[in-house]
């Protein structure tokens, strides 16, 4: 279990060291007006939405599922909140808007759960529906415009500071909450049981449908919070581009963190590491002065490398003949 996290951890350390070599001040932290700034803080802040979505994704993947719709759901959350706020500057409107958005996200999660657990549709396809239609819905809400708002309360979510950026605090809070809930209640164990052996779990009386439903709702709510962060950070809702491809980043974070797409044992710490690796990678590409778009190449290399290291078949490549026989 522990050594599973070794490779991601090494990758992260290597990336951070690379940054340190290129930018010696990378690890430096400074306080200004009671706000903490620095390279590491930036990594955390920019990585917060991915981390949030990856947390939800971890549980979904642990049940042998996948949720492609989270990016679209994030866009919907931002759109709904910004449209609700409109020109208002009051905090209560902002909170009402966010509440409406998150409830809506929960409903979208229920919808995904219904397709997967209720109708038994393959998760990739079931969530592809909302991935495609969701952006259309977000644009419907914003009527195709980029909706800008000017609301101090809303701005706090993505751009505010309480010593650390609020978005970091929210992401860590959710991480702590998930860790607490899954380990303190039986949710984590039942999720893993369903993911490892669905039939044995059914015969042991596990309500797998409820479990699956729960994780999709949770993933959608996480996506909603991430969507609020993204939109709040720029005080605008961009239905087209908010959270674009974030589902892929999240899936990568989960896989890099050592949770298998085949379901079963998952690691929240691994997901945290995975999300950090992806964000640090992006930052590193910036700092070493390559065009930011080229990050994708490095992402691809990291994914394949990590997957190969973890693939049992790559490890067993030497004793391949024996495996094939038995």
């Amino acid at each position: 279990m522990k050594n599973k996290l070794l490779w991601p951890l090494l990758a992260l350390v290597a990336l951070l060291l690379l940054n340190l070599i290129v930018t010696p001040s990378f690890f430096a932290l400074r306080m200004q007006d009671g706000h903490l700034y620095g390279g590491l803080v930036d990594v955390l802040k920019n990585g917060a939405p991915t981390l949030l979505i990856a947390l939800g994704m971890t549980l979904v993947i642990a049940t042998r599922g996948i949720d492609l719709s989270v990016g679209a759901v994030a866009a919907i959350a931002g759109a709904v909140t910004c449209v609700h706020i409109g020109t208002s500057g009051s905090a209560s409107t902002a909170f009402a808007g966010m509440a409406i958005a998150l409830v809506l996200c929960a409903v979208l999660g229920l919808w995904n759960g219904f397709l997967v657990a209720g109708l038994g549709i393959q998760p990739i396809i079931a969530t592809l529906v909302l991935m495609t239609a969701g952006r259309g819905v977000a644009m419907l809400v914003t009527e195709g415009q980029i909706v800008t708002v000017n609301n101090t309360a809303y701005r706090q979510v993505g751009a505010g500071f309480v010593v650390l950026p609020v978005s970091i605090l929210i992401a860590l809070l959710v991480l702590g909450l998930v860790a607490f809930v899954t380990r303190r209640t039986a949710l984590g164990m039942l999720i893993e049981a369903v993911g490892v052996n669905p039939e044995a779990s059914r015969l042991a009386g596990v309500r797998s449908r409820t479990i699956i439903w729960t994780v999709y709702v949770f993933a959608a709510v996480c996506a909603g919070i991430a969507g609020l962060m993204i939109s709040s950070n720029v005080s605008a809702a961009d239905a087209n581009n908010a959270g674009l491809w974030i589902e892929m980043d999240a899936i990568l974070a989960v896989v890099i963190g050592g949770t298998s797409l085949a379901g079963g044992r998952y690691s929240l710490t691994g997901t945290l590491l995975g999300a950090l690796i992806i964000q640090t990678l992006t930052t590193t590409v910036y700092t070493i002065g390559v065009a930011p778009e080229v990050t994708l190449v490095f992402k691809a290399i990291v994914v394949i490398a990590v997957c190969l290291v973890q693939a049992p078949k790559a490890r067993a490549a030497l004793s391949f003949r024996k495996v094939a026989v038995s």
Binding site: E192, A193, V196, N197, E199, A200, S201, L203, G264, R265
Partner: peptide
């Protein structure tokens, strides 16, 4: 293995 135990737990 198939219907009884959850081997990875």
């Amino acid at each position: 293995k198939g219907e009884g135990l959850v081997a990875d737990l």
